[in-house]
Design a binder for these strands. Structure first.
Lengths: 348, 348
DNA sequence: GCGCTCTACTAGCGCGCTCTAGTAGTCGCG
DNA sequence: CGCGACTACTAGAGCGCGCTAGTAGAGCGC
């Protein structure tokens, strides 16, 4: 790369972005007036407003959010931490934007990834002056979360942190799980296996609820849990394990989430099993993957739009100082029977 | 929600975040010195540095990036526009972070989604003072892109915009496609169908290259293209169409990307076909979905880390004023033969 | 003509930081 | 002892905006 970087920098081929002062000068009014107009505050005549907007348009003026943040104490920015690979997070993000906009907040996204841990993602949001954080299925330790929540309002989505003083919005996992097991039992299943979600969001609750539901149906001795996590890989892994011992196949499999169910399905389809004739499969989330027509996965719907909306409202409410105690919002999930479940083999 | 919002706001239960002045006061030095220390500039003694860092730690001080942006002309922020649902974008984002960090840039993510179009996503990035934009597989019109590129350095990933003066980093689609067809022909295939990628990134090139490669092998009369796009749904759709007329099945299917291939696979697996015995399938991208062990998809690797790295470097180079003409970086793709391709039926 | 209110606008400080142009103090050298 | 060079530090302007406290002028009643 060339050596004349500094000279080139000074040349600044591109004009710096126009400021409020430029707009004001062009219209022939004060900066303050332009500010009023852009904040949509009363105190400017209709004609002036129009002229300001037109001048701004012509100059390509765009309010500088750094300066806005600095000037008002409120930055009006919510920070969202997500895992880019998680499709359910994608659904949540899509639900967050419109509500935030409605309430006048801007959204900043920061991704956690294998090469970028959650702390780093959160750090980035903090230094960008977010007023509050929304954490999508965080895997942080409770201690770290508690510490974070002391500094800044935090809402956690899709995960419970009992004992930590943060707002949280999540699904009543147990209810959904109970409906899954009820549905399967009703169809005639007894050998219902659960693929565990490891450290994933909601896994503990789902596993516990699975055991409880099985016991309630007098199927305590049929309880069978395979280790896994929230990835396709783990579903496939579980399928491989099961197919290695065909004598001992369950008649139904309840995966800890849709991705896991999908991995499982891919594997058994490929192995030539018929779903649901040979085996029923249920997921959890109803991510957009699940209701693709060719998958048509029986699952439990966690309404992401509603979850996102509530989370935004909860955190905004907290920001406006209307509440200081933590709040836990629990949404009812909705069981969705689709094409991957049916009567067990030999009873169809 | 209660009516005393403003009063509550004034009460400010949480202390406002500490500033540089607080740190300076605590150490007993000037703000400027603290600034030096945090920017890691020479001019402060080792002991002072340590004391500053310690004081900052104790106060929980964190530089305010809004103020930083405002004060230096350089914001040191790159804006990334992505589609949250796209797994290949997730791969790219993961590749972007480390390089940006190495070069001292911060990353701001903004998502396009069905409810939030690309213009809006870009607007958000612009008002957050990004110095440059990285657009992942944008679907903008060339005109809009050109207009954008006049205001701010832009690099487009995974897509060509011939005639528009922007930097771009993409794969030599044609090369990859040629290798796909070569591979299939070598295995003995002649009836190779292509599922089109619609308006998706790279689709035009892939379709054209498919036709060209088929002709090169003297298979012009076997060319067959089914409409589709870059989603699982479209792959499944194509599969449904094909299976409706079993007499007329191709022996191999080349999907426009991995997601499409996956949807296709799911459908044909489920229908009881054996892959690759009955049908070979090839994708494009080598997204992390493809190399899941149970999918084991033959595909074309577009190295996302490398693409991400180059894109960041290209845009940073442009920012430092070392170049003003647009640059197009074309990466060689790498064909990856995996388990979804084999000899055509009747020749195995 | 006076005070009053109301609309339409302006002056100017301050948000938390960066950065230029400085000032002390120390050291080495002729 | 004076001078330059270097280290360690500081003063203060200014980045683009929001916002408070103001003003100028019009309209109105008495």
């Amino acid at each position: 790369m060339s050596e004349d970087g500094s000279r080139a920098g000074e040349r600044r081929p591109r004009r710096a972005r126009p400021t409020m002062a430029d707009v004001a000068a062009k219209v022939g009014v004060s900066r303050a007036l332009v500010s009023l107009v852009f904040r949509n505050e009363p105190g400017a005549s209709k004609e002036t407003r129009d002229r300001v907007f037109q001048a701004a348009e012509e100059l390509g003026y765009r309010p500088d959010s750094a300066a806005q943040m600095l000037a008002r104490s409120r930055s009006k920015v919510l920070g969202v931490m997500l895992t880019v690979r998680n499709p359910f997070h994608a659904d949540l993000v899509e639900g967050i934007y419109p509500v935030a906009e409605e309430l006048g907040y801007d959204i900043l996204l920061s991704a956690a990834a294998p090469t970028r841990d959650e702390r780093k993602a959160v750090e980035a949001l903090l230094s960008h002056r977010c007023e509050a954080l929304m954490l999508l299925g965080p895997k942080l330790e409770s201690r770290d979360l508690a510490q974070l929540a002391e500094r800044i309002p935090v809402v956690v989505l899709g995960r419970r942190f009992p004992g930590v003083e943060v707002d949280s919005v999540h699904t009543a996992e147990a209810k959904g799980v109970r409906q899954v097991i009820d549905h399967l039992v009703e169809l005639g299943h007894a050998d219902i296996l659960h693929i565990d979600g490891g450290r994933g969001a909601g896994s503990v609750e789902r596993r516990r609820a699975y055991r409880a539901a099985m016991r309630r149906h007098g199927l305590a001795d049929r309880i069978r849990v395979l280790p896994g996590d929230h990835t396709e890989e783990s579903g496939a892994q579980a399928a491989a394990t099961l197919l290695a011992d065909r004598e001992n196949l369950p008649t139904a499999v309840f995966a800890s989430n849709d991705r896991c169910a999908l991995g499982f399905l891919d594997f058994v389809w490929r192995a030539g099993l018929q779903v649901p004739d040979d085996l029923s499969v249920v997921g959890f989330d109803d991510s957009h993957l699940a209701h693709l027509s060719h998958i048509d996965l029986t699952t439990v719907r966690q309404d992401p739009d509603r979850q996102a909306e509530l989370a935004v409202r909860v955190v905004v409410e907290r920001l406006s100082g209307e509440r200081s105690e933590a709040r836990e919002l629990v949404l009812d999930p909705k069981f969705v029977a689709r094409g991957t479940t049916g009567p067990p083999p030999g009873r169809g």
